[in-house]
């Protein structure tokens, strides 16, 4: 596969629910190996954009190409790993071990009516190892902390060897002390395994020194560039984009959540 080719290319994308546009005129290209943060307030169309990229919603106007192929024709879904926001609100009473949950990430790749081979099982062990949960492999997922559960979902996404990993606000519900180490792990996946990351978040403060690219979305794409350009943009355009003073978007370690209107 051509590594120079952007992982995702979006051209003139519009999307509407009922009569209202939630996305307008989106043009976005994600280069291979990038760590892109998509930032935007609630209701800015972030989740819609993700659902379109994941094929959960059909493209209405415009074009999305993943790995160079039109999204409607794209079949190799296992190349895209997904960790959803809902991962935090799954049924914690569900009786499944860490191993079982991670192995379920291979369901499509292994295929209908087929069973996991010993090679597949090895992959499951490796994925669990890579998120540092080997110790908990036979625990029920409901018995783990929020941060550990989130790692389980990352492992489930990693097990099918994705080249792109999409994370929708993965740190919601993860206690503050574990957020930093969580992002460090993401950085490792990006640098060591070369996995392209697309992270949707409110919380640009914690990660702006880790990501390589930033996109600011609020129906339109307000900014799209690498993180150095973003620092410049931040000084001039971000407050306007959010419509309020955004302490959240600085590099300070203390977040002033109480000052943020939602």
């Amino acid at each position: 596969m051509n590594t120079d080719q952007p992982i995702i290319q979006i051209h003139d994308l519009y999307y509407r629910y009922e009569k209202e546009n939630v996305l307008e005129d989106i043009n976005l290209s994600i280069p291979s190996g990038a760590f892109l943060a998509v930032v935007g307030p609630n209701g800015s169309g972030k989740s819609t954009l993700l659902k379109l990229i994941l094929g959960l919603l059909k493209v209405q106007t415009g074009e999305i190409k993943v790995f160079g192929e039109d999204i409607n024709r794209f079949k190799e879904r296992h190349l895209i790993g997904f960790v959803s926001q809902k991962a935090n609100s799954f049924n914690t009473g569900f009786p499944a071990t860490v191993y079982e949950v991670v192995a379920s990430g291979l369901t499509k790749k292994v295929g209908l009516f087929k069973f996991l081979t010993s090679g597949d099982k090895q992959k499951v062990f490796e994925a669990i190892e890579s998120v540092g949960l080997t110790k908990f492999i036979n625990r029920n997922i409901g018995d783990l902390s929020g941060g550990q559960q989130q790692r389980v979902f990352i492992a489930r996404a990693l097990v099918s060897d994705p080249r792109l990993l999409i994370l929708d606000e993965p740190t919601v519900g993860v206690d503050a002390q574990h957020v930093q180490s969580f992002y460090e792990m993401l950085e490792q996946l990006n640098k060591d395994l070369g996995i392209t990351l697309l992270l949707v978040t409110h919380d640009i403060g914690t990660i702006s020194n880790k990501v390589t690219h930033v996109a600011c979305l609020n129906k339109h794409l307000y900014f799209h560039g690498n993180s150095h350009e973003f620092e410049h943009f931040q000084e001039h355009g971000v407050s306007e984009f959010y419509g309020y003073d955004v302490n959240l978007l600085t590099h300070e370690h203390h977040h002033h959540h109480e000052g943020v209107k939602r």
């Binding site: 569900f94 499944a96 379920s104 369901t107």
Partner: peptide, 18 residues
């Protein structure tokens, strides 16, 4: 496999093309 994934996480099952 499919029934497990469908039970545990229907959205993920859909997104992975099952």
């Amino acid at each position: 496999k499919e029934l497990f994934l469908l039970s545990f996480d229907e959205e993920h099952a859909t997104a992975s093309g099952i």
